[in-house]
Simulated scan of single mutants.
Amino acid sequence: MSLRDRAGGACALATFTLLCLPACSAQDISIPRSICDTPVEQKLTAPLLKRTGELSEWHTAGWGGKETSVCIISVDKSEALRFRFAWHTDTIDPMTYSSLDNSVTGLWEPRRVGHLAESATLGDNGAIATTRCEGRAKWHFTLALKVTRDQKIVHQRNDIEQFMRAYMPATMKAVGCTHP
């Protein structure tokens, strides 16, 4: 076998291996059509999740019926997204809960954002939105999202904002909350 034949065979094998690696390695996750019982476009969820692995969803007991509920989306048993849903009688300022020293909802570089809810903050790793709510015994609804999948990725603000602009009103509808 000549050197040229060996090189051609090695090249073909290397090309096959490179083409196969993305398809033959870990299986791509299937982006769900709903997150935490709320329908949302897959194209809005995909940037917030790791591309490969097994996706799972976990809710606190009494999901949706308690004053505060949590929903966690995991990829390969590692937490990727954490949602907190809260119903309360008083108004809150999301900036108060956005500081990094808040272990539950602390956000990187939080800033106020308009036209998302009555009051909202957006960070590089999550968002908090709150609004008045009719249709429940409690009069305010707050949704907090924290992206936890990779602490090294810090600039997801645009992806988070696009997701929240769709997810907040869809969640309000899903929990029976209408803005007065």
Rank of each mutant, 00 (worst) to 15 (best):
W139S: 11
A7S: 10
I160L: 05
D150W: 06
K173P: 01
G123K: 01
T89P: 10
R4A: 06
E79I: 14
R33W: 12
P180V: 04
E134S: 15
V40M: 01
G53N: 02
A129Y: 06
P180D: 00
A23N: 13
T178V: 15
L143V: 04
Q162V: 01
D124V: 07
D5V: 15
A170F: 06
S98A: 15
R4V: 10
N125W: 03
F141R: 02
R33M: 14
M1Y: 11
F16K: 01
N102D: 15
K138R: 11
L13A: 11
F16W: 00
A166S: 11
G62F: 01
L143Q: 03
I128Y: 04
T130V: 12
K138E: 12
T105F: 04
S99E: 14
G123D: 02
A26P: 09
R84G: 03
G53V: 02
T121H: 03
A23S: 12
S25C: 15
A46T: 09
W63C: 07
A174D: 11
M168L: 14
D93P: 05
V40Q: 07
C71G: 00
D124N: 10
T171Q: 12
L13P: 07
P180S: 06
D93K: 02
G126L: 07
R82E: 12
C71L: 00
H179Q: 15
Q27N: 10
A137W: 00
Y167A: 04
P22F: 12
V75E: 05
P110D: 04
K43V: 15
A46G: 06
L143C: 01
F141H: 06
C36D: 12
S99V: 15
L21K: 10
R4T: 08
M164F: 05
R112P: 02
L3P: 00
L44N: 10
L44C: 08
S119C: 01
E54F: 14
P169N: 07
G106F: 02
K138M: 08
N158P: 02
A46C: 08
R149L: 09
K43W: 10
K77V: 08
S98D: 06
W139D: 11
T89A: 13
R112Q: 11
R132Y: 03
T38S: 09
T17Q: 07
P110W: 06
A10M: 07
T45L: 14
F83M: 09
T15E: 07
V75Q: 04
A12E: 02
S119D: 04
G106A: 04
D159V: 05
A127W: 10
E67K: 11
L81W: 04
M95A: 09
T52I: 10
I92L: 00
S25G: 14
E161D: 03
E109P: 03
V40F: 01
P94M: 05
E109M: 07
T38N: 08
E54R: 14
